[in-house]
Amino acid sequence: MYIRDLKNTKGHISGLTGGEWNPKSKETILTSSEDGSLRLWDVNDFTSQKQVVKPKLVRPSRIPVTACAWDFEGKRIVGGIGDGSIQLWTIKTGWGSRPDIYVEKAHSDDITGLKFSTDGQILLSRSMDATLKVWDLRQMKSPVKVFGDLPNHYAQTNVGFSPDEQLICTGTSIEKNSTSGSLLCFFDRKKLELFSRVGISPSLSVIRCLWHPRINQVFATVGDKKEGGTHILYDPSISQRGALVCVGRAPRRKSVDDYEVQPVIHNPHALPLFRDQPSRKRQREKILKDPLKSHKPDLPVNGPGFGGRVGTTKGSLLTQYLMKQGGLIKETWMDEDPREAILKYADAAAQDPKFIAPAYAETQPKPMFAKSDSEDEDNEK
């Protein structure tokens, strides 16, 4: 309804795209939103944010911030902007919205995941342009390495490190014409090359992945618009607890006394009674499309007819059309001279007047008609 500066709002005014805890201070949260801002929050006081960060834009507009992340010291934050740029801010006294590092056109599509290394030297970025880029924070003009052919169709697809940060992992999405399923790809950080690819699901895309440092297991969430699930990758000799606890147990035998109640899911908003009524504008547009409600007149028929009307040049009904084709109705008036058609009945009208002529028979002068051009030509010949 109105335009207002984002710094004056008590929170985001659009949907959130990401959020992350400060690794050093568990009371501070960083969030990014579609309203084009990043905000820092104090969990003890959620009435308003602590800081509002607006990214640098080439043109004044409202472009969403699609991803955000903290570094492991809690001193820097990074945001992936909808225009494909990566912007980094250093948290210090008197810092504002002006970024310390600005990489224009870092990606050609939305950035879905950002991740700092523990030593603060490497930054990973994952995008919907099917790439994973490795950046050196000391020289951010160009990426150190670009890994391509990584399809990504979900705004939540992330990128992460292994616990020792020697490997980089990310998931891929399934494409329409592709025969291979979704993959979990691992890359060597030092050699900057592909280390391994693990097939996860033949029909569901890998959306997020996490390598847990304590139990040493990799979790991959898969899904599409209809279903979802979680896949766990582990090594029995290296992993601890986690999935091993479930795998080591024998399946519980079902007893006769076990009774499973099938849950009944009630969705009241699916019923027509509880649905939101469409806006008046949409109702008017729907009525205008309905020829009965809008009292729309019939348009002239052109080409093949419809609705019982045949699209002939004379615009006739179906019955008339069939009778004409069958020879039962012959229309000759289109080819006749109107003057001759009227004079054809002149003699009959003079001998047997019926309507107006008898009333003026005594006073009506004798009509004199001009001769046709064809008769004059015949006389001259």
Rank of each mutant, 00 (worst) to 15 (best):
I168H: 01
G326W: 07
R197S: 09
S196W: 08
L16S: 03
H12E: 00
G15H: 14
G228V: 10
L88W: 05
C68Y: 01
S239L: 01
T131R: 05
T47M: 12
L167E: 03
L204N: 05
R98L: 10
E362V: 12
L123Y: 00
L292N: 09
L204D: 01
G229F: 02
Y321M: 12
W21A: 03
G160T: 11
D136S: 09
T221D: 10
I207N: 03
P143I: 03
I3G: 07
S25F: 14
S85M: 03
V134M: 04
N379W: 11
S239D: 01
E20F: 08
L6E: 05
R98G: 03
A357C: 09
W211R: 01
G80Q: 01
P64D: 00
S255L: 10
N216C: 12
G327C: 05
W21L: 06
V256F: 07
L38K: 07
I232T: 04
S279V: 13
T319P: 13
S374T: 15
E285R: 09
Q139M: 10
M323S: 08
R208A: 07
D352S: 14
T112L: 02
I111H: 00
G229A: 04
R284D: 06
E380N: 13
R126C: 01
R197A: 08
I13Y: 04
A250Q: 09
P304A: 13
R214Y: 15
D224W: 08
